[in-house]
Design a binder for these strands. Structure first.
Length: 137
DNA sequence: CTTCTGACA
DNA sequence: TGTCAGCA
């Protein structure tokens, strides 16, 4: 179970998550207000999302598209566990590493996330964003 | 330039 | 939900 840390490791800002999930910043923040997600914060109060957060957002999006409202989603989805909530807390140390994690390490992480058992349908959603990491620098 | 919070023609 | 303001 040492894979959990990677999924709960917060590394992307809301801008990336918007592209990843096709949700507006407004929606993402709104869902956070309703505790559907609990992204970590940087020292500058900026939100930092983990793979788990993105996955939750995709689930939320799927439910929204099915016509489910916030109240309904809260019932269907289990609340954020304390473990992942604690795990996503950003420390000054991990925050620095996030910036040094741009290239090879990030590529490996993303690759691992993709191959680490996931439905082929959902993977395609982040495919476009992945190309950004592989082409960009 | 990007993100954050609050507010509503 | 969108969108704009005024900060950081």
């Amino acid at each position: 179970m040492g894979d959990e840390i990677r999924r709960n490791m917060a590394l992307f800002p809301i801008g990336i998550v918007m592209k990843l999930t096709d949700l507006s910043a407004r929606q993402i923040r709104y869902y956070e207000q309703h505790s559907l997600i609990v992204p970590a914060r940087t020292s500058g109060n900026q939100r930092l999302f983990s793979f788990n957060d993105v996955e939750r957002l995709l689930e939320i999006k799927a439910l929204i598209e099915k016509g489910v409202n916030i109240a309904g989603i809260k019932q269907v989805m289990n609340p954020v566990s304390k473990e992942s909530e604690e795990a996503t807390v950003i420390t000054a140390d991990t925050e620095v590493k996030r910036r040094e994690l741009s290239d090879t390490q990030l590529h490996r992480l993303l690759k691992q996330q993709l191959v680490a058992g996931k439905r082929p349908g959902q993977v395609s959603l982040i495919q476009g964003e992945l190309s950004r990491f592989f082409n960009n620098k």
